[in-house]
């Protein structure tokens, strides 16, 4: 059981990184970015390339990879989002699908189809009271939680974070106060790209990178933000962990001491989660009625 919780924590940390950025983008711009999974993978590949091919040290590669991811997301915003999202918020849905296909092909071209792992030597396993996990996983989970803490601080205790929250909650009012929403839109989109790249690095270290992972990643992130409530950053994070934990429990537990659920159903958990939420709480897990007329 402890092992399942730890497994959920590992998988959840990965999902949280990706879903968090997506929630911000959805909350602020109201748009769907369907090339998210590809951005995740590109971040991982960039670090793999810098570390394994160029030969930089891992920390330098990670910083470099994140910078590259940030740059790429910026270009993405200017070319695929900015010209469209003010006309209709569904237009980026189409343009980002196109972008996703372009990136899929680009990854095959530059990184080939063979799987890549960022670390060349295997993992160092440890055993803590019957729970087994690798040193790398401990790092990844701790860094993710740290990153989320930094985000929490920025979002809730700095002028910049206040501005973001203001734009999320009432963009017209924020603009009428002199907040430059268009600049914030760019910053937030780039931030989501960088967070996604962190997810890619996570995958590249904990598992391995293959160019076709993108779509399932996107789906899971969307499950988390739908369940977490529209544009609710913390809701999305909590739901990402929740879905990951459920996925582990569903197949890891001997239900009622009698049977196991076949592993093939594991991936349906996220989708089932969306459906249940849309039926029971369409506005998400973390939206409370606080409107008084």
């Amino acid at each position: 059981m402890e092992q399942l919780l730890i497994n959920g924590l590992i998988a959840g940390s990965l999902a949280a990184l990706i879903a968090g950025g997506l929630a911000l983008v959805y909350g602020v711009l109201g748009i769907f970015n369907l090339a998210l999974g590809q951005m995740v993978l590109l971040g991982g590949y960039a670090v793999w390339w810098l570390h394994q091919s160029v030969g930089l040290t891992l920390p330098v590669s990670i910083v470099g990879g994140l910078l590259m991811a940030g740059g790429l997301t910026w270009v993405t915003f200017e070319v695929f989002i900015a010209p469209f999202y003010k006309r209709h918020r569904f237009l980026p849905l189409v343009t980002t699908i196109a972008l996703g296909m372009i990136l899929d092909a680009a990854m095959l071209l530059f990184f080939e189809a063979r799987p890549r792992s960022i670390l060349s030597n295997g993992k160092n396993i440890m055993d803590i009271g019957g729970v087994r996990l690798s040193v790398e996983q401990v790092y990844l989970v701790v860094l993710t939680v740290l990153l989320l803490c930094v985000f929490a601080y920025v979002l809730h205790s700095t002028p910049f974070g206040r501005r973001i929250r203001a734009v999320v909650q009432h963009s017209h009012a924020a603009m009428s106060l002199g907040i430059r929403a268009s600049v914030l839109h760019r910053v937030i989109f780039i931030l989501s790209g960088v967070l996604a790249a962190c997810g890619g690095i996570f995958i590249g270290i904990d598992q391995n990178l293959t160019p076709v992972l993108a779509f399932p990643i996107t789906i899971k992130a969307y499950a988390a933000i739908i369940a977490g409530g529209k544009g609710n950053f913390w809701g999305a994070i909590v739901c990402a962990y929740l879905i990951a934990l459920l996925e582990q429990l569903v197949i890891g537990i001997e239900w009622f001491g009698r049977f196991y659920i076949p592993a093939g159903y594991q991936q349906s958990v996220a989708l089932l989660f969306i459906i249940v939420f849309l039926l029971c709480r369409p506005s998400g897990l973390f939206s409370f009625k606080n409107r008084t007329a």
Binding site: Q3, L4, N7, G8, I10, A11, I203, Q207, N208, T210, V212, L213, P216, E247, Q248, L249, I251, G252, E254, Y260, P262, A263, G264, Q266, Q267
Partner: peptide, 19 residues
């Protein structure tokens, strides 16, 4: 004897059944 969806990368919980 378990069947997983194509492309699955997380087998940890499935393997805990073997404990």
């Amino acid at each position: 004897d378990e069947v997983v969806e194509p492309g699955t990368k997380d087998y940890r919980s499935l393997l805990t059944r073997l404990k």
